[in-house]
Design a protein around this nucleic acid. Structure first.
Lengths: 153, 153
DNA sequence: CACATAGGTTGTATTTACCAACCTATCTCT
DNA sequence: AGAGATAGGTTGGTAAATACAACCTATGTG
């Protein structure tokens, strides 16, 4: 089966590549949805965003709210409130940035680190379960694809 | 360098499989973090969830609200309200399921299809950019992996 | 020294989604 | 056939997340 395409403006025909692209979009979206709904199970106190914030702070050895906002594409007010909640939980400590007294350096407290590690472990368990019947090679390949995909930011 | 593992409860040593699992976690989460912020750009009328709902309806040639709720792990009330909004926009039509009069079959209207295609095109542009240098085979493989991953509910 | 700017906080409104209660149609078991 | 039990869907109430705007303070720059 084939068709004519008469102008430059018409969409390309639906190829298998397009089908696959569409599928990738849909599946990634479904994943995002589910990740959000499962986030509660990670740790009773940590939303997905709060968890990710702690994660980035840890990875960078402390960072400013503005960094978090930029990284996660969140408004600074949102970060401020999330940070406030984490502080109230005793999960993070702030110190004035010695180099620039406008800013603060945010770090996980020991309790915050502990909670974050627990959430990590929970998540690892869930993933293991889901990928239990996958070959090592397939898992490695999927990981490689995702890294490649995300690195193209 | 090597270590002893003395009890069944200790974590397994870091194998390549574990490395890959950790990577998949991180990369999928990185995607989930940012998906939300990109959602607004898709279409003035369509939230990410609304768009995804239309997409799945289309893919399946019409489906019930319960299917959508299950697929996206959303509460049925959420689906009901999103469907109501889409209907008010003239983007979807409902018909009573002839096989089971409790349910409804939801389908995009022509306008809904149009809006969805526009949103899809927006997203496709972004994806194309990212996946421009991928082989068709790799894209198809990634799609297959994601489908497999998501179907393991 | 005056003004523009960056990091953060707070007020306000919107969106999103969950839970619970409820309705109707269907199914199952006797 | 009749009596629950159950599934799909709607509506009311509510909580959380987030964006936007206004504002404060510290910093940088002419």
């Amino acid at each position: 089966m084939w068709m004519y395409y008469t102008t430059m403006n018409e969409k390309a025909p639906s190829t298998s590549r397009d089908e696959a692209l569409r599928s990738i979009q849909r599946e990634l979206t479904a994943f995002a949805r589910r990740a959000r709904s499962r986030a509660t199970e990670l740790h009773p106190d940590l939303s997905l965003v709060a968890f990710s914030m702690l994660d980035l702070m840890t990875e960078r050895g402390g960072c400013r709210g503005a960094d978090l906002a930029a990284y996660f594409m969140l408004d600074k007010s949102t970060v401020s409130r999330q940070a406030g909640a984490l502080e109230k939980l005793g999960y993070l400590v702030r110190e004035t940035d010695p180099d620039d007294h406008r800013g603060q350096i945010l770090r996980p407290s020991p309790a915050g680190l502990k909670a974050m590690r627990e959430a990590h472990e929970q998540r690892r368990i869930a993933f293991l379960d889901r990928l239990a019947d996958w070959d090592d090679a397939d898992i490695a390949q999927l990981a490689a694809y995702l890294e490649r995909y995300n690195s193209a930011v």
